[in-house]
Amino acid sequence: MATVELTFSALPAHVRTARLVATAIARRTGVEESLLDEVRLAVGEACSRAVEAHRAHCPGEPIRIELKDDSGRFEVTVSDLAPSDEIKQEQPLDLGALSDSFMSGFGIAVIAGLADDVEVFPSPKGMRIRMSWPAAPNGHVI
């Protein structure tokens, strides 16, 4: 198992960097080209959610991403330190209730729709989103 860890300040500009790093490592790990867009979007969603949560609760704290090549899977875990409630998924779509600045429920829904395998761990001390995709067994080692 090889791991790359990345921490970044809660600034929107850094989300793109995180997406690019995750996509580059996914490619190197042997994730199929057709899945790389999904990796890019899902990691971007998780990082955007974390950045918005940190900006609201703890702007000085960094966000952490862990990228692992583990037994033929490419696994990404995004961890934040902002208190979070349980995420209610599959809520009925109510246009009037949607905020145009931050739609965290949408972000999680998008990740769930994109990643092959997703687990969300909300807690008062922060949220951890773990997602993974199949990687080719003969993929390169990180």
Partner: peptide, 16 residues
């Protein structure tokens, strides 16, 4: 070439 849920939120806001 890239759109995330923040972008969707902006479009929904515009629609409203």
């Amino acid at each position: 070439d890239f759109l995330d849920s923040t972008g969707l939120g902006v479009l929904v806001g515009g629609l409203k």
